[in-house]
Nucleic acid binder design. Structure first.
Lengths: 332, 332
DNA sequence: CCTCGATGAGCGAACGTTCGCCTACTGTGC
DNA sequence: GCACAGTAGGCGAACGTTCGCTCATCGAGG
């Protein structure tokens, strides 16, 4: 069905090994005329090299594996897309594998190993520190991850979470807010701890410690953000500003605040986090801390390819975050 | 680096071919005791079969290619995720390839062919009817697409676009609206034509034809939807309801209506299309026509695998759409 | 006792490449 | 007229599998 090197060689009247060399650009191997003959034969027959055969002998599939938990999540999909493009621009394919309730990490990783991917990119925040995933990933294969991997030794890439919290806090303090609440993600997570710490430390340094009652935990979802915001204002109605640890929950928060009849941002300011594409189109447009997902994906792929190429890469890679001021924040 | 069949066989004291057969579950090939010995050796050594070698001899990579234009788009990424999972549950890997401005379709398809994918799933609405893509896809390889492919012959899967328009129109008519506008996607697209036709025909059948001035074209983006909505109300301020052809533009529409000081939904009803995850959290929660992206992805993968397996599959596959009534619509 | 049909296991070939090494030819300098 | 260097291209082996065929052993039936 596919035309092979042998077919091309036959048409050009050379051995298939010679055709291989010419088609791979080894220059000092054939006369210009033979070279031209081979190229032409390949083009005429529509020769497409067989990556599996090549991978077999070269002992490298020229493919990376991408392990994600939920890449219908916009943050993850932006990351994956950018990573795929970066990989492609270096000639590498991207094989995706997803982990979710039904399918355990071990199986997903094994699938990737069967295809002999040259390295794995992990974007599975929900599997942070999961021993099973850590075990599956242990081994000689290069891995770069966006979330902590149990057992360590895996280079991380991400953004400066503490700074994220700091930027949000500083912005609200600068505006003159004094009673500030926050809706955080699941407490166990690194991201959450770091963002919260940056946020809390900044408030404390300004003489405005963050009491526990002004912290509401949620699960990153619209619904969770919505409910948490209601809880927050139920326990402390005097709050004039809220930092929500991702944009999706911030959207829920906005809805909750609307429901309470508050005028936004006059009665309550909201700072989100992520800067997803919809943030600018919320009502009011959301002030948020931008997390560079695309840059992260691109960088992650580049780092992974570097490691595959044998280079040493840093074990922690932080990309800068940035406050994007829109209209959901104002002075109290 | 990886352990091969030969290693396993050596440890079990059999030939590697026998090990192969046993590990592939060919039952009538070895005595229970040898079988057990081989299994144990494989487990102890951590044998992971080499999919490239297997693919070479079997002449099938057990992999499908997924060609998408922008899978950071939520609709596309939901589709891709579901497709990947369906493929995985049938033991197939998923290799992704993206097409965008810098990289032409031909190259993206060729990459997939190099890996000898067993079939290709196309989700590239922006490349609808693109001759270049059609040419690249022509050939014996099974393909299933979500958008029309130039040259024909490619089985399509999607939702009933005309019905989508009909449902939206009927809902607004039922509520008593008479002056109804619509924000549509790029006019050239099939989806747009079909949705618009269903919408227009239903209005006309009710004695309320849709004049051209109540149609505003946009480009599927927030911004586009926002601007188109402003244009629509500038030319015809009497409009009491708008059908917007996707949720992203609907979000822009909501923003534009807010800016005009309209109370929603009292002063203007909005019906979206897609039912993306954020639709329920807009203010007001968006009434929209649900497009089953996940089901589409799953179905697409299943169809493709069927074709790969040699079955005949229908050339047009329509999945049902459904109106989801929330709070952005009410009687005028 | 001889043959026959299972059963268990080995063997060779093939899949489409890459890569290092070998060989044959060509022309140059003495 | 001969050794020698350089160049063009061929050849064999290897990568890790699968699969069909062959072969040896064994117990049973005549």
């Amino acid at each position: 069905m596919y035309v092979s090197l042998k077919d091309v060689a036959a048409r050009a009247g050379v051995s298939f090994q010679t055709a291989s060399k010419v088609l791979n650009g080894h220059s000092r191997v054939a006369s210009p005329s033979t070279r031209e003959r081979i190229q032409r034969a390949a083009a005429e027959l529509g020769y497409v090299p067989n990556a599996m055969a090549r991978g077999l002998v070269r002992q490298a599939s020229v493919t990376i594996g991408v392990l994600a938990d939920d890449f219908s999540d916009q943050a993850v999909s932006q990351f994956v897309l950018a990573a795929q493009r970066a990989a492609a621009s270096h000639g590498h394919g991207a094989l995706i594998s997803s982990v979710h309730a039904d399918i355990d990490a071990e199986l997903a990783v094994r699938k990737l190993l069967e295809y002999r991917v040259d390295g794995i990119l992990v974007a599975a925040p929900s599997l942070e520190d999961e021993p099973q995933l850590g075990d599956a990933l242990r081994g000689p294969l290069p891995v770069v991850s966006i979330n902590r991997i149990h057992g360590g030794g895996v280079p991380l890439i991400g953004s400066d979470h503490a700074l994220t919290g700091t930027l949000a806090a500083q912005h609200l303090l600068d505006l003159g807010h004094r009673r500030i609440g926050t809706v955080i993600g699941p407490r166990g997570r690194q991201v959450v701890r770091r963002r919260t710490r940056g946020f809390r430390d900044t408030l404390r340094a300004a003489g405005r410690p963050l009491p526990e009652r002004r912290i509401a935990e949620a699960d990153w979802t619209y619904d969770g953000g919505w409910a948490a915001t209601h809880r927050l204002l139920d326990t402390d109605p005097a709050i004039t500003a809220v930092f929500v640890q991702n944009d999706v929950m911030a959207m829920g928060a906005l809805k909750a605040l609307h429901e309470r009849g508050l005028r936004l941002p006059a009665d309550c300011s909201v700072v989100g986090c992520d800067d997803l594409s919809f943030a600018a189109y919320l009502v009011p447009p959301l002030t948020t801390v931008r997390i560079p997902f695309e840059e992260t994906g691109e960088r992650a792929a580049t780092l992974l390819l570097d490691r595959i190429g044998g280079k040493q890469i840093p074990t922690r890679n932080l990309l800068p975050v940035e406050l994007v001021v829109r209209e959901s924040t104002t002075s109290p």
